[in-house]
Design a protein around this nucleic acid. Sequence first.
DNA 1: ACCTGAACACCGTTCAAGT
DNA 2: ACCTGAACACCGTTCAAGT
Lengths: 198, 198
Amino acid sequence: MSDMPKNRGLHDRDAKRADIVGVARELFVSDGFERTSISRLAKAAAITPNTLYWYFEDKDDILVAVLTAIAAEDTAVYAGVADRSLGERLGWLVDRLQRVGPLVSTVHDRASKSAVIAEWHNGFHAYAESLFAADVAASGLSGPDAEAMIRIGTFVVEGLLTHAPPPEASRAVIDQLVSTIARRPTSRCAVSGSIQAR
Amino acid sequence: MSDMPKNRGLHDRDAKRADIVGVARELFVSDGFERTSISRLAKAAAITPNTLYWYFEDKDDILVAVLTAIAAEDTAVYAGVADRSLGERLGWLVDRLQRVGPLVSTVHDRASKSAVIAEWHNGFHAYAESLFAADVAASGLSGPDAEAMIRIGTFVVEGLLTHAPPPEASRAVIDQLVSTIARRPTSRCAVSGSIQAR
DNA sequence: ACCTGAACACCGTTCAAGT
DNA sequence: ACCTGAACACCGTTCAAGT
């Protein structure tokens, strides 16, 4: 009651945190997470290495803050394409996230070691799956089949992000994926049982 | 001519290298690549850390040796399932490689930093794609469409490896994938143009 | 509340020196 | 040819001390 932090203090703290996140974002995206040492990051942010630990729990916590900032930016822009077709939305998403570059596989690698990053990764998956939910349901799939198809969609998106093939190849993959989801009309027309190839 | 290494010397070197690779394999698979320090590995192999550099270029080189050893083992066992259906072969592959656990995403992460690992990763992709080639061709796809479908297949396999969902979910994903590849008979039966969802 | 200097226990890697 | 002891330049993180 008596010694509450002033509003200005809180604001300053958030502003400085945002500064650090901005610097970290540039370095992480251009040089990668592992190659960006705490001391290099501190130098770029014009502070001492240990000062970072006043604003963040640890290095993974900084990564989460960077990922969250990027996601917030993307979510804001996403409004402009939210009503487009599945294919266009996927194209936009892959285009956008490919700029994040090496961070995608870093998240996968560190998710098994850091709880905060695992949590963020889960959130991303939930979001990616929500992109497919409506179209998969519209295709007539439900239950485990629908879940499997949604998983296929997210795996393909992640594959495009981690491997970043040339743009026309990415487009071909997205088109193919979209058509396999939509090519499931109410009229059955192909063998639906198990397939014995060869 | 005069001071050639004896055969026994060569043999010993290979045997010791194999010993180290065996120890490294266990540690990498159980604890992960990053968490297994050179000094821990050396201690487990009953040698000094710097001795490792007599047998290997660097830590990534050890990882490549471990990956190669695992791949060789798997290739040998693969003979037993080579003539099964695509679904069964994929199930076997995913089952087998999921035991490698955290190494899959480590390879992705380090491929952007180490040339030897990038090379190995390329080889793995070529192999995974070869698994799908015949069935995709048999489905009637060709050219860029076939390549896109093959890429989808490898992305789904990698997704299953890195995320390791429960076995029944993995099976559902594989079944769905196989059926989308095979569900492309000579008789056209669904809209093939662009799809406008919503 | 915020920031620092100095230290801690590591890390992967190198190299002169031994056999 | 093979192996080591000792060192190198780092790394992420902690903490007592300052303001």
